[in-house]
Amino acid sequence: MSASSPRIAIVGAGPGGLVCARVLQQHGIPVSVHDLDASRTARDQGGTLDMHPESGQQALRAAGLWEQFLELARPEGQQMRLAGRDGRILFDATPPEAGTDEGSPEIDRGRLRDLLLDSLAPGTVRWSHRLTRAEPLGGGTHRLHFSGGDTADVDLVVGADGAWSRVRRLLSEAVPVYTGVTFVETGLDDADHRHPALAALAGEGTMMALDDNQGFVAQRNGGGHIRVYVGMRTDEDWHQRRGVDLADADAVRDALLKAFTGWSDDLLGFITETDTGYVNRPLYALPVPHTWEHTPGVTLLGDAAHVMSPFSGMGANLAMLDGADLARALAAGPTLDDAVTAYESVLLPRSAEAAEGAAEGIDGAFAPDGAEQALAHMTRHH
């Protein structure tokens, strides 16, 4: 396939799209990546990720980046704690010792993205390329139209453009729907020195406190930062119903404190001691299963194919495995279409299984007996 140099464009420079580009380049296959951001530093990349052996780690090995990853990873970040609404620790899984690659080592999303970006040939990523539409030209080719007026004619467009993918529209009418759970994100800076009690409660990895359709998730990031998600099963427009202006930090704080009446003051500190303000993040997922009829010249990976709740722990891991699998199929396939068909035959059932698990995970966590369900799950898996 490399001899015929198919024109391959990946839309979206997230972990899945970048892994795909990296593995393609390792096989000598040209590729371009188009991203709507103005640069790699245009926005915060989010929290931390645990790289699973059967997915994210496999993708990093396929990309030839495993050793570089280990230099950046935080194995201590695998610590998992569960607390009740009274702040009492119900479960505490000790992480592997620092310096080991056992289990599922953590890495900040921003550091992972930089690792992948730095591995690509210069000029691979075209920044400020917001896709407005993909125009079928026949025979599997498409003309990509970008907001700045640029166009690109390609033999394969790979939708790696996230939950609200524009590429997906070529294959499916499905759109993500609200899961019934909203996170309000906040954060603590220099937590060990400025918020020592909360830092001790959070531990070195992730602490969850769950009860009665509500909960806290405190996630240790690099640089002393703790990212906090205040979660609740509620209406998508909860803030409007309560007359809360999301731009008014005091109003959001007061609304959250009212919603969490009866919770331990130790846990409520994750709301009141914020250094970053509050960001409303309703959680969405595609219908399960999300499938499509094979269409020459286009395919999907990552959230574009299977956005699901974060309670699967699989989102970025699956996206990276998708990217590696697609690239390896393209390198091995006798034709572009044969390669994409082979990739999709693996992707679709795998995605459906993971999405089912994610739906069960969020429903179990944000349930009347969320702590009991989470404790049973952690006890089985640690």
Rank of each mutant, 00 (worst) to 15 (best):
S5E: 14
R7Q: 13
L18I: 09
V19N: 08
A21F: 06
V23W: 02
Q25H: 02
Q25V: 03
Q25L: 10
Q25G: 09
H34G: 04
A42G: 12
D44C: 06
G47N: 08
D50N: 10
M51T: 10
M51L: 15
E54F: 11
Q57K: 13
Q58L: 14
L60I: 13
R61N: 09
R61W: 12
W66Y: 15
W66R: 03
E67L: 08
Q78D: 01
Q79N: 12
R81C: 09
R85H: 09
D86M: 12
D92I: 10
P95S: 13
P105N: 06
I107P: 07
I107R: 04
R113G: 04
L117D: 00
S119P: 01
S119N: 02
L120S: 06
P122E: 00
T124S: 05
V125H: 04
W127L: 14
L131W: 00
E135Y: 05
P136D: 05
G140A: 10
H145N: 07
L156H: 01
G159R: 10
A160Q: 01
W164P: 02
R166I: 06
R168L: 06
R169M: 02
E173K: 13
A174L: 13
V181D: 00
A191G: 02
H195F: 12
A199S: 12
G205H: 04
T206P: 03
T206Q: 01
A209K: 11
L210I: 06
F216G: 05
V217P: 12
H225T: 14
V228H: 07
Y229Q: 06
Y229K: 00
M232E: 07
T234K: 05
D235C: 08
D237I: 03
H239Y: 12
Q240F: 12
R241Y: 04
V244F: 09
L246E: 03
D248K: 13
L256R: 09
K258P: 01
K258E: 14
L268V: 11
T274H: 01
D275K: 06
T276Q: 11
R281T: 11
P282F: 07
V288Y: 10
V288E: 00
H290I: 01
E293L: 08
H294G: 02
P296I: 08
L301C: 07
A304K: 00
V307I: 14
M308T: 10
M308D: 10
S309R: 02
L318I: 15
D322N: 13
D322T: 04
A324G: 01
L326S: 10
A327Y: 00
A332F: 08
P334Y: 11
T335L: 13
T335I: 14
V340I: 04
A342Y: 04
L348D: 08
S351P: 09
A352L: 01
A358L: 05
G361F: 04
G361C: 02
A365T: 03
A367T: 08
Q373V: 08
L375M: 06
A376V: 15
H381R: 13
